[in-house]
Nucleic acid binder design. Sequence first.
RNA 1: GGCCCGUUGGUGAAGCGGUUAACACACAAGAUUCUCAAUCUUGCAUACAUGGGUUCAAACCCCAUACGGGCUACCA
Length: 547
Amino acid sequence: MTYKDLADLIFPNITKTVEDYEKMYPSRNGRVVTRVAPSPTGFMHIGTMYQTLVDYIIAKNNDGIFMLRIEDTDQKREVKEAVDLIYEALDDYKIIPDEYEKNGKMVGNYGPYVQSERKEIYHAFIKHLISIGRAYPCFCTKEELDELRVMQDHKKQRTGYYGKYAKCRNLSVDEMINNIKEGKPYVIRFKSMGDFERKFKFHDEVKGDLELSENDEDFVIMKSDNLLPTYHFAHLVDDRLMRTTHIIRGEEWLSSAPKHVELFNAFGFELPKYVHTPLIVKKDGNSIRKLSKRKDPEATMSYYDNLGYPREAIIESLMTIINSNYEEWHTANPDKVYTDFVYSADKMSSSGGAFYDLEKLGNLSKDIISKKTASKVCEESYEWASKHSESLKELIDRDKDYYTKILNIEREQEKPRKDIVYYSMIEDLIWYMYDDKFESRNKEYEWKNITDIKEIKNILNIYFDEYYNPNDDKDTWFNKVKELCDRLGYASNIKDYKKNPENYKGNVADISTVIRVAITSKSNTPDLYEIMKLLGLDRIKARIDML
RNA sequence: GGCCCGUUGGUGAAGCGGUUAACACACAAGAUUCUCAAUCUUGCAUACAUGGGUUCAAACCCCAUACGGGCUACCA
């Protein structure tokens, strides 16, 4: 019996060869090809988004092709609907892959793009390996492997299935065939020819030139339960056949790179470029760790959606981690889109992990929102509210025009107001502009220096009877407030007040605060003049009567 | 335990043998026709993990130590 017989026994129905597939998926003539390859685990991790951006940028920079491939070889972890979630997330961020598969519809000629649909292809490659004696069935049980590990551990040796410990590699072909015929369960392992003591040069686009030990493990390439390949083997087959030129993946893969190199060599395939990106980490007390979906809500893209950050802000903040010179570039080129930025792998931080800074995100975000027009903010916040906030949606629905005007306060000016960080905070910022909310929601007036209600009413009565005119422009409006100050014994000029506070009952800031609080109940609001204009005299009077 | 990667101010991060060690966030003070959000100005920190080398010269090169991270699965 020969290896060929063994291969035929294991894969009797596989007739296509590696060469056939090589012809079916020809080289793409030097075009850059990247791919993001998430597993459908039920949520979109921020790290996946980060990775995606790198893939996307590299493809866009080089007029290349960006693919989305679903890695669903682990059926135990799979979650229903998770695939849709991935498409949705990319869609939200307007990152449209050039090649992908959705609802059974395939876009691109190098698919299928879902690993569970590629079984036959993997099998053809494995069959080839078996027939040349570079892969073999392993019948070791879970218990045996555990035992081996414990033993190696005890002897202080490297754990793993390699060299003399790889006992199934020494089975004769006849024994293997007999075992299979007896129905013993098995996995397929790669037969390594490597020597752990030997080093080879490996170039990583981020880390530079490295020296790694050769792989000597007979690692599993096909699982026993679903006959699907492990990541290592799928990477080889998929990225070869899809002609991926740049493998962008997290740093955690660096240590298995020797496996991949040996695999590519075994087939005589040219190695793609590897871009091992730092992980997104966070500080947890004294230790640093990967962002985890269980412990860190901010690890999941839905966290940002729920809060209502504009997507550009997320992209922007991720881009600054990807290449720290991005921010500088963007200030120099404010009109360009982020895909115009030229990514360089060697500028990527090679240090342990990248911290995702929510504070920085907030800063970026309010800057971005402040630069949008009021109607744009209206539109986007409405879209957000439709999914996440019934009450804000209701408020907008009442009168879109009025809502837009509120958003427009201090917006159309050289340095627009920056107080909205994300859309979910809008309602908290503007509720007092709605009469019913004002009446019901807050009876606590935030009076500051002047708290005597008689004095307050006195100030307001005089102001509204004799000074306020809705038709005044802003300068006139403020001058009248100052006139009122002078008349009532408050300093209209703060500098004067600071020099001789004992000469006055207070100053113009105190008077402004009284008006502000009476009308809005809050001591901090945007420009009072604009608020009063928007509210109109009747509504203002009604509010003052409520005091 | 073994193998690999890393360590620059409060934080992220430039730097690639000769720099006053950028820049951004945060922070502090002052300024502005009202509060807040901003904006402007200024400031800010004993920042190159430690100890040895190599060199006329080291954050940058080499070696050790410490610390952090990753991998060490029929998970990706």
